[in-house]
């Protein structure tokens, strides 16, 4: 029997989650393969919600597949595609289908995706979505109506430790905690000195405001090539791959860059765990989910 992510967060010293992406289309065989590969190796599996504004199978459907295959899903829910009615309805449906964890995000803007002409929604923002989850947990909806049967979600959110400027980011981080976020899965982290400074500030903020307990899982995005690393530096705000890592990838033998990327990810995870920088890691091996076990092996977590 799979353990609830809520219990794992409380009991385990170092929590590991991973992200999988649903297919664009109805063929879920690869998705199911990833679920079976990872369900016992990590503590919970996130499912992205139309990641990068590219239309796919819904996060909810994939989360249900995870439940059916004996895993523990984390439903990612963005504010981009649904207004407050659809968001609440999706949350209730998720609870009904056995999903117990939800990660509340703002969502990428529509123009970066494959339907750039679409009408963006953003009726709520991520803080308000977290509040909404709390209302549903208390047995009422956003309008104050009583529910026949409440939810009891464990809610989480995201934070960007390397955002520049960081101060407004921390303002929102604190609001998210107050709005009920109990865990954070961060944007990709590569420079551990910067991440350490972020953690110090975040911990101070939590202590000052007597908030807690809040678990923070460092985001680990698998680097597949030097090109990808450079692309992220240029195009993805809040991600900063240090030049030394890019050099390692460039220096790799032909066809071995991915292997080097896996070693880098493993090394980062090991260092985070040894130094107890935070409470765990969240592995995003975008499109390379089948290599997550290799990353775990490199990190000594297999």
């Amino acid at each position: 029997m799979v353990r609830l992510f809520r219990d794992v967060l409380q009991e385990k010293d170092f929590v590991v989650t991973a992200e999988i992406g649903p297919p664009k289309g109805t063929d879920v065989s690869r998705l199911v393969h990833h679920i079976e590969l990872l369900r016992d190796r990590v503590d919970a599996l996130n499912v992205t919600d139309n990641q990068s504004s590219v239309m796919r199978v819904s996060s909810l459907a994939a989360c249900r597949l995870i439940v059916e295959h004996g895993g523990e899903p984390i439903l990612q829910l963005t504010c981009r595609d649904r207004n407050r009615l659809a968001l609440q309805s999706e949350l209730l449906s998720a609870w009904v289908l056995g999903v117990r964890n939800v990660l509340c995000l703002t969502g990428d803007y529509v123009t970066v995706g494959d339907h750039p002409e679409a009408k963006p929604v953003f009726d709520l923002d991520s803080v308000q979505l977290l509040q909404t989850v709390q209302y549903l947990n208390q047995g009422r909806d956003l309008a104050g109506n009583n529910l026949e049967g409440a939810t009891d979600f464990l809610a989480g959110s995201v934070v960007t430790p390397e955002a520049d400027p960081l101060e407004p980011q921390l303002v929102k981080f604190a609001k998210k905690v107050r709005a009920g976020a109990r865990f954070f899965q961060t944007q990709a982290v590569y420079d551990l000195d910067r991440f350490r400074r972020f953690m110090e500030q975040a911990r101070r903020l939590l202590a000052q405001n007597q908030m807690g307990p809040v678990k923070i899982l460092a985001g680990i995005v698998l680097l597949t090539s030097a090109k990808m690393a450079r692309y992220m530096n240029e195009h993805v705000p809040g991600i900063m791959v240090p030049e030394s890592l890019i050099e390692q990838l460039t220096g790799a033998e032909k066809g071995k860059a991915l292997q080097v990327g896996i070693q880098i990810a493993g090394r980062l995870i090991r260092q985070i765990q040894q130094e107890r920088l935070c409470d765990g890691v969240h592995i995003m091996a975008i499109g390379k989910e089948e290599r997550v076990p290799d990353i775990l092996a490199e990190a000594g977590l297999a």
Binding site: C79, T106, P120, D125, Q128, P237
Partner: peptide, 15 residues
């Protein structure tokens, strides 16, 4: 663009 009311999203980029 996302009419956020509670602070920046993660896409904020050097201002």
């Amino acid at each position: 663009p996302k009419n956020l009311l509670n602070g920046p999203c993660g896409g904020t980029n050097h201002g």
